[in-house]
Design a protein around this nucleic acid. Sequence first.
DNA 1: GCTTGATATGTTATACCATAACACTTATCA
DNA 2: TGATAAGTGTTATGGTATAACATATCAAGC
Lengths: 181, 181
Amino acid sequence: MLWYNISSIHTPCRDTATPRHGGPAHARFQSHDHRACIAAAVTAADAHCRARGLHFTPQRRRVLEILLDGHRAMGAYDILERLRDEGLGSQPPVAYRALDFLVAQGFAHKIERINAFVACAHSGAEHDPAFLICRVCCAVAEAEAGPARTAITAAARGAGFRVERVAIEAEGLCPRCAEAA
Amino acid sequence: MLWYNISSIHTPCRDTATPRHGGPAHARFQSHDHRACIAAAVTAADAHCRARGLHFTPQRRRVLEILLDGHRAMGAYDILERLRDEGLGSQPPVAYRALDFLVAQGFAHKIERINAFVACAHSGAEHDPAFLICRVCCAVAEAEAGPARTAITAAARGAGFRVERVAIEAEGLCPRCAEAA
DNA sequence: GCTTGATATGTTATACCATAACACTTATCA
DNA sequence: TGATAAGTGTTATGGTATAACATATCAAGC
């Protein structure tokens, strides 16, 4: 399971949401080859778009790279700030359009609870993401929610509702904060 | 399953979100005794608070009544408008404080996807709500998510994450809009 | 090429959602 | 009855998101 730190967005636990390093929860992505991991995800997205005749434009590509590089949940305005620094756009719609595209294509997810976006941890593969959000440090993990999705889809079908997308977001304590408590 | 209509809040489908009547999806609560249903829920909340030494103040009671009466997903500012009309408060924090209390006590739920609140359809009973949100007309239904919650809690435990609260929100087509499509 | 329609971007303005902070009041209980 | 906690009133501001319209770019058929 991949863990993300939260960035400076507006959240219930914003004040304590400074990036944490060295802990067990994050050991996994401290050791991996982050550069290669980003490149692979971008390449996969590129191929996906090519295959479908979609435009993987510089803006969209860059926003995905920023999300992958940050390796954390980022607010749209965090993204926008990066884009602005790089001369790739300066107004909110620029960020939101790119993010909408990435989310629609499954390259990124929106975490409704905290109004933030993360690069998808399993790009390319069909999957049902669930997010675990620590209420103390706001770290976020993407977990697999296949069985849960199956359950809710079945319940919905019984009511005549046709499910297209499911957002599952669990709030609680991450391993580190649970131990501290 | 209980269906709610969406109110005038800011949503992807706000323009088509006028209350709908007469359809099969809503037949269930058109026939029930709404007055009695509201009274029962308020009485239950009152008893719950009394038992725990919590203050079920006039403001909190009134906000719950408004949610129950509206029988739909309402934005905090919709609530505030009602309170203002009744002289019970005029500034946003008034509405948010009451809503926070009601959500914390389980008398209401927040639907993150659309930044709206609904009165709980099963007040008093322990339950795990899941929401079905129609992407066309924004009608909202509260379904039971017990099995899904069990699944996600188990997956989280495997990662050392302690789940306290789970939000499950499915987006798709309600029976009526599915039929129209 | 050139037109045409669809898609994407630039920009302004605005709407909507939510809380920090502080003063004041009311309830509870030792 | 005085101390403490909980709730309310109010101002101000911060954070999130989109409508609307102008412009530019791309892809396909003539």
